[in-house]
């Protein structure tokens, strides 16, 4: 029973990790690439870590919970690093796919960022 649960967790984890990297390799622009690793890969690695926590809790004496720490850490840091990379990409004005709809804020378009608000740089 435990063995089957572990196998499922490991497989699901590996699958999501693969999907994250697949998205990274396949998507046409940076902002779309950002989605794969921040969500899919994080959940995938989380699932593998939970499998490891279960395995060592049941196969050695005593509970092994320190994997939870890495999972927590990853879930807290992944959005932060995604945010920083997106900031850098906006700052460098990377190209987006043409069909990306832009957000209209106050007097301008959000896709170019001027550092104070999301107004278009004149």
């Amino acid at each position: 029973m435990l063995d089957a649960a572990l196998a499922v967790l490991v497989l699901v984890g590996a699958f999501f990790t693969l999907v994250g990297s697949w998205g990274l390799a396949k998507m046409p622009d940076f902002f779309m690439r950002l989605h794969g690793p921040t969500k899919a890969s994080t959940l995938g690695v989380g699932a593998v870590l939970v499998a490891s926590a279960l395995y060592f809790s049941f196969n050695t004496d005593g509970v092994s919970l320190h994997e939870v720490l890495v999972t927590l850490f990853l879930f807290m840091t992944a959005p932060v690093s995604a945010h920083m990379m997106a900031k850098a990409a906006l700052h460098l004005k990377l190209k987006q796919v043409e069909r990306t709809r832009s957000a209209v804020v106050e007097s301008g378009v959000a896709n170019s960022y001027d550092g104070t608000s999301f107004r278009r740089k004149e």
Binding site: G13, A14, T17, G20, S21, L24, F30, R33, L34, G36, P37, S41, T42, G44, V45, V48, L49, V70, L74, S81, M85, A88
Partner: peptide
């Protein structure tokens, strides 16, 4: 940078 970040994640797995 994003690719490097993903490499870290994959290495952990």
């Amino acid at each position: 940078i994003l690719a490097l970040d993903t490499l870290y994640l994959n290495t952990i797995a």
